[in-house]
């Protein structure tokens, strides 16, 4: 019970940092990596809060499909935000 709270708090702390960095970053490729990091920590929270079904759906979407889509978009447009 105590460990659950610690893990959730630590994961939410890091995910908030990753979310802000993804918004503030000017190099959008780095921002994409921050988003994948965000997804990993959200998955951890889902798993600890006893939602393994949601975690299983979130892993492939957040760490493979969404970054690939964003990277393809960046390759076809521009990498740096002005």
């Amino acid at each position: 019970m105590f460990l659950t709270v610690i893990v959730v708090l630590a994961a939410s702390f890091i995910s908030v940092i990753a979310a802000y960095m993804a918004v503030a970053e000017k190099d959008l490729l780095t921002a994409t990596v921050y988003m994948a990091l965000l997804g990993v920590f959200y998955t951890l929270i889902y798993y600890v809060l006893m939602a393994p079904d949601v975690a299983l759906a979130y892993i492939p979407v957040s760490s493979a499909l969404l970054p690939l889509t964003l990277i393809v978009v960046l390759k076809k447009t521009e990498r740096y935000e002005k």
Partner: peptide, 22 residues
């Protein structure tokens, strides 16, 4: 500056989470 803002936002989330838990 970005990292400082991010860490302070994270601390806010952490504090809110602890208050909510208590």
């Amino acid at each position: 500056k970005n990292i400082a803002v991010a860490v302070s936002l994270g601390t806010l989330a952490l504090t809110l989470g602890m208050v909510l838990h208590l």
